[in-house]
């Protein structure tokens, strides 16, 4: 095997050309004086559609914001960069805000804008059922594939089971919570569980593969409760109020667009962010979520949402009753209310 450290001449000029092009790409952005926002989302999901629409339709650019997005793949991975200042704005579940508020951290954060208004989990049944045939009592004595202990999908789903008088520890054959979230889809497909909760597009994928059918929506069972929100540190908000306001405006505009646009248009716009995802599945997921009304037409995270969230957290054992936080401490509604007024 020969090893030529310098590379051939053609390779060298190709590399120079790429380098020059990259420099050229950077220059115009620097001249445009847009503010760069380092943005991290907790996972990549069709559930967060309005955020991708805001990027693709240029709503952020209109507000003078240049978004640098990446995905953390887990709450625990998003919080350190947020607290350390490497990320300016993050997309997380609001329960993280409750945890941060209760923590000894000297820096605190605020929720300033809401993305999803409902839990997006769908309940799948392995056996096919007629419409409206499903009754919650049917899960008794069966295997229920839930999320890992302590995560918001798990405490939400557990709350709904208890609401219907089902004790997961006693009334189910197996309450399965020890499957890591990355493995849940393949576990279901491999045959684990008679009932289980999944987000889109997994739910559509399972239906398409004939491995199950959607029979209920956790979001509808819980009712409206902000499920995903944008957060930033108090320091960042104090230093960059215009950017935060611009962010809310862009998201509100995207929400308005998503509420009325055709699913196929939305799917086409979101496609660049879901290169691995089957177009048909994406379309099915968007249709279902539109029908369920999961996207927040009002970007203000409400007080009732926080109350309901904390009720569920206390019931789920992840929060002690005396650790409940007040709305004013964790939410800044100024920006979101302005955004709603502006985007009329």
């Amino acid at each position: 095997m020969s090893f030529n450290p310098i590379g051939n001449k053609a390779g060298k000029s190709a590399r120079l050309a790429v380098f020059a092009a990259a420099l050229g790409g950077v220059a115009p952005a620097a001249l445009a004086q847009a503010t760069t926002v380092n943005y991290m989302e907790v996972i990549r999901s069709i559930f967060y559609l309005p955020s991708y629409i805001a990027i693709e339709k240029g709503y952020f650019k209109e507000q003078g914001i240049d978004v640098k997005m990446d995905t953390g793949w887990g709450t625990a991975k998003v919080i350190p960069p947020l607290m350390g200042g490497q990320r300016d704005i993050v997309l997380l579940g609001p329960e993280s805000q409750v945890y941060i508020e209760n923590s000894p951290s000297p820096d605190k954060t605020k929720i300033f804008c809401q993305l999803t208004a409902k839990d997006g989990l769908l309940v799948l049944s392995r056996k096919k059922m007629a419409t409206n045939e499903f009754k919650w009592a049917m899960v008794k004595g069966k295997d229920y594939l839930d999320w890992t202990n302590g995560t918001t999908p798990q405490i939400d789903s557990q709350w709904v089971l208890k609401k219907h008088g089902i004790d997961p520890q006693k009334d189910l054959a197996n309450y399965i919570t020890n499957v890591a979230s990355g493995n849940r889809d393949s576990a279901w497909i491999a045959g684990k569980g008679d009932f289980g909760t999944f987000f889109e597009p997994t739910a559509s994928l399972i239906e398409r593969e004939n491995k199950g059918q959607v029979v209920a929506s956790i979001g509808n069972e819980i009712g409206p409760m902000g499920f995903t929100v944008f957060m930033a540190t108090d320091k960042y908000i104090a230093k960059n109020p215009k950017v935060v306001q611009g962010w809310c405006n862009a998201i509100q505009k995207a929400q308005n667009f998503v509420a009325s646009a055709a699913p196929s248009d939305l799917a086409k716009l979101a496609l660049p962010h879901f290169m691995q995802l089957d177009y048909g599945l994406m379309l099915s997921a968007i249709k279902r979520y539109q029908g369920l009304g999961v996207w927040a037409t009002d970007v203000t995270y409400s007080a009732p949402s926080l109350t309901k969230l904390q009720d569920i957290m206390v019931a789920g054992g992840v929060l002690k009753a005396e650790q409940r936080v007040t709305y004013e401490k964790v939410v800044n509604r100024v920006f979101s209310e302005n955004a709603r007024k502006q985007a009329k």
């Binding site: 709450t75 625990a76 919080i79 993280s96 945890y99 941060i100 923590s103 890992t148 202990n149 302590g150 995560t151 919570t177 020890n178 992840v318």
Partner: peptide, 15 residues
Amino acid sequence: KAGLGYLIIYGSQIL
């Protein structure tokens, strides 16, 4: 569902 590894994961999930 149990073990020190489980506690580590659970602890990091609830911060």
